[in-house]
C-alpha cells in the first residue's frame, strides 16, 4: 500500500481484462461464502439455536433444583442423575466447578437443554469421539440448545473457559440410552 494518495481521477482509468477477472472471482467467492452461512446453518444442523434469555442466577438455580428433584433417578459422586421425559426442557447448571445434574437422555428424542452459570463464565464442551460441541455459559443468561442424541453412549462435558483453580476438575457427564 502506498503512503501517498493515488492521482486524482484514478477511477476514470478503465479496468484491465485480468483485473476484471480477478474482481469477478473475488466477488463470486465472497457471495458464495456469504450465502453458505445461512445454508450451512440449516444443512449442517450443528449450529447454536441462538435462543437465549436473561435470568437471575438464583431463579435459574431454583428451576434447576426443582427439575433435578423431580426427575432424579440416581447419584454419582454426589452429582444427581436425572432422567427427564423425552422432548422436555432440561436444565444444567454450571457452578462450583461442577456441571449439575448428570443428564440421562433417550436416543432419537429432542430435548431443549437450558444452560446457565451461577458464578463465572464457563464453556460447555460436549465431547465425543466424533465431534465436539461448544457453547458459552454465562451467569445471568439462559442459553437454550435443541439436542437430539443420535447415538447411545456416555459423553463427557468439560469446561473449556478457564474459570478458576478448579477449572481442570470441572467435568460433567451426559448419558444417552
Amino acid at each position: 500500500m502506498s503512503i501517498v494518495s493515488p492521482e486524482k481521477g484514478w477511477y476514470s482509468e478503465p479496468l484491465d481484462k485480468e483485473e476484471k477477472v480477478w474482481v469477478a472471482i473475488a466477488l463470486a467467492w465472497c457471495l458464495l461464502t456469504f450465502f453458505l452461512m445461512p445454508v450451512w446453518h440449516v444443512v449442517g444442523k450443528q449450529n447454536p439455536s441462538s435462543e437465549s434469555y436473561r435470568v437471575d442466577p438464583v431463579k435459574f438455580n431454583e428451576i434447576a433444583t426443582a427439575f433435578t428433584e423431580k426427575y432424579k433417578v440416581g447419584e454419582e459422586n454426589g452429582i444427581p442423575i436425572v432422567h427427564p421425559p423425552a422432548g422436555s426442557d432440561v436444565f444444567v447448571v454450571a457452578g462450583g466447578y461442577q456441571w449439575r445434574p448428570i443428564l440421562e437422555l433417550e436416543k432419537g428424542k429432542e430435548y431443549r437443554i437450558h444452560l446457565s452459570s451461577l458464578d463465572f463464565q464457563h464453556g460447555f464442551s460436549l465431547v465425543s469421539p466424533k465431534f465436539v460441541m461448544n457453547y458459552m455459559v454465562l451467569p445471568g443468561y439462559d442459553y437454550v440448545i435443541k439436542v437430539t442424541p443420535t447415538e447411545a453412549g456416555t459423553y463427557s462435558i468439560i469446561c473449556n473457559e478457564f474459570c478458576g483453580m478448579g477449572h481442570h476438575i470441572m467435568i460433567g457427564k451426559l448419558i444417552v440410552k
Binding site: Y53, R54, V55, D56, K59, I63, Y141, D142
Partner: peptide, 8 residues
Amino acid sequence: ISEPQMDV
C-alpha cells in the same frame, strides 16, 4: 437490551 426475560 432486546434480550427477553426467561419465563421462570
